[in-house]
Simulated assay, not measured.
Amino acid sequence: MEGLYLHWDYEELFEAIRETYQEFWSEYRNGTQALARTLSEFEAVMNLGAFERSIILIAYGELLVTHSKVFHKSKEYLVNELENLNFEQVKDKATLEQLHDLDARKKVIIEKIEQKTVTTTME
């Protein structure tokens, strides 16, 4: 799994999250478990700042909406976190293009997650 870095590149962090998810998926063969472990693995990185937090939440959301069903707590958590993202806090580390990309990805995730079947069991 990924170690804690003090500086992450935009694409590098997205890629690290996808790779970590794939590693956990290979281990557990369960998307919900793999996603929960991935988010847990990057919890310390999320605490580095708004830039890292934004990327991790967007990447988490992109992975979550690939699942056929979404655990209700995962949906609640993600929607709440995405609604509270403040891209103004990211301006010092992200380019204008990256800010637009994050915002576009966020909108797609929110739209897609509303279409997902919600479950109360972690399958």
Rank of each mutant, 00 (worst) to 15 (best):
G61D: 08
T120S: 11
V45A: 12
S68K: 12
S26T: 15
K107V: 05
Y5N: 13
L13I: 06
N47W: 04
M46D: 01
T32G: 05
I55T: 07
F87N: 08
A16P: 04
E15D: 15
E81Q: 14
N86C: 02
K75T: 00
K73D: 13
L99E: 04
E88D: 14
Q115A: 06
R29E: 13
D9Q: 15
I113T: 02
F71T: 01
F42V: 08
Q22I: 05
H7F: 11
V118D: 02
E81Y: 01
T66I: 05
T117D: 12
R18C: 02
V108H: 08
Q98W: 09
F42E: 07
E15V: 06
T32W: 07
Q98C: 09
G61F: 04
D103F: 07
L82H: 09
R29G: 00
Y60R: 09
L6V: 04
S54L: 02
L63Q: 03
A36N: 02
E111L: 09
L99C: 02
V90K: 02
A16Q: 12
T38N: 07
V108E: 15
L4I: 15
K91V: 12
A59K: 09
M122C: 07
F14R: 03
G31K: 03
E114S: 12
L78A: 09
N84T: 10
A94S: 08
E12L: 06
E97K: 15
V70H: 13
A44I: 02
I58D: 11
N47F: 03
R105C: 11
Q98M: 10
L13M: 08
E27T: 12
A44E: 14
W8K: 08
D101C: 04
H7D: 08
Q22A: 11
L96C: 00
A16C: 09
T32N: 05
L64I: 05
I56F: 04
A16R: 10
K91F: 03
R105W: 13
W25T: 01
K112H: 05
E19N: 13
D92L: 03
Q33D: 07
F14M: 02
N84Q: 14
S26I: 00
T66D: 12
E76W: 04
A104M: 06
L39K: 10
S40P: 00
I17A: 03
N30K: 11
L6T: 09
E81N: 09
K107L: 10
E11G: 05
W8M: 09
M122F: 11
R29L: 13
Y10C: 06
T117L: 10
T38C: 07
Q89C: 00
E52A: 08
E43G: 04
E111R: 14
N47C: 00
N80I: 00
S68N: 11
E52K: 09
K116Q: 08
E97Y: 09
K116L: 08
E114D: 11
R37T: 04
A94W: 06
V70D: 10
K91Q: 11
F51R: 07
L13S: 06
S74V: 00
R53C: 06
A50M: 04
F42A: 08
L64A: 14
R18Y: 10
L35Y: 06
L99R: 12
R53I: 00
E2F: 01
S54D: 08
E23A: 14
L6K: 12
W8N: 10
D92N: 13
I113P: 03
Y21T: 05
S68Q: 14
